[in-house]
């Protein structure tokens, strides 16, 4: 598939394949209304009900082609296969901390790559307005930071193991409670 499969040619000024970041994600992109895409669409087709759609779909004009989508899918496929393979690593390479540690690292890296491939291309995050990117990334960062801190506060920085408290007595397990209702 080539780039002309999309209707990009219609917009003339934009080259869909080249550095989409620059055209939509640059400084002025946040205040998207003045972007040239909108102007051109409105100017080219003043009479259509593309009034509804013109600017709304502005983001897609730089979107990948079908072929690119398939490429990304195969990359994702391969990455997932690699992920699944880590499950068998211990049987292939023998058990051991090193294997496990490498496996976990690889898994986390692949997870992040897959995450951003899907978000960036399938969800058009790379090509869309900077605002949605920031909204979404902000949510992700808040989620990651607060839950990481909360989990560490619960499991790592606890008092059970406080240096001065050499040998804390074993916890008194709670008494089991009677069957409710």
């Amino acid at each position: 598939m080539n780039e002309n499969d999309t209707d990009a040619g219609h917009f003339g000024k934009e080259d869909p394949g080249s550095e989409p970041e620059k055209s939509s994600g640059g400084e002025s992109a946040v205040a998207a209304p003045p972007s040239p895409v909108v102007a051109s669409s409105a100017g080219d087709d003043p009479d259509v009900d593309g009034r509804h759609m013109g600017h709304l779909d502005a983001g897609h004009t730089h979107g990948p082609t079908d072929g690119q989508y398939f490429t990304i899918f195969w990359v994702l496929f391969a990455l997932t296969a690699l992920e699944v393979s880590t499950y068998f690593w211990e049987s292939w390479f023998g058990e051991g901390d090193a294997v496990r540690r490498v496996g976990v690292t690889v898994l986390l890296i692949i997870m992040v790559i897959k995450f951003f491939l899907i978000a960036g291309f399938f969800m058009h995050l790379r090509f869309d307005s900077a605002l949605v990117r920031r909204v979404f990334i902000f949510g992700l960062i808040v989620a990651m930071v607060i839950y990481t801190v909360a989990m560490s506060a619960m499991n790592i920085w606890t008092d059970n193991g406080n240096p001065w408290f050499d040998d804390p007595p074993p916890p008194i397990t709670t008494t089991t409670v009677p069957e409710a209702n």
Binding site: A32, P33, A42, L56, L140
Partner: peptide, 29 residues
Amino acid sequence: EFPDDSHATSTGISNPKLAMWVYLASDAL
């Protein structure tokens, strides 16, 4: 600049799409 296209939203992103992104960010938590 003020777009003449009277359908334009202030950010150029349509309402449903922006709402969906905000919702997804919320769902991340």
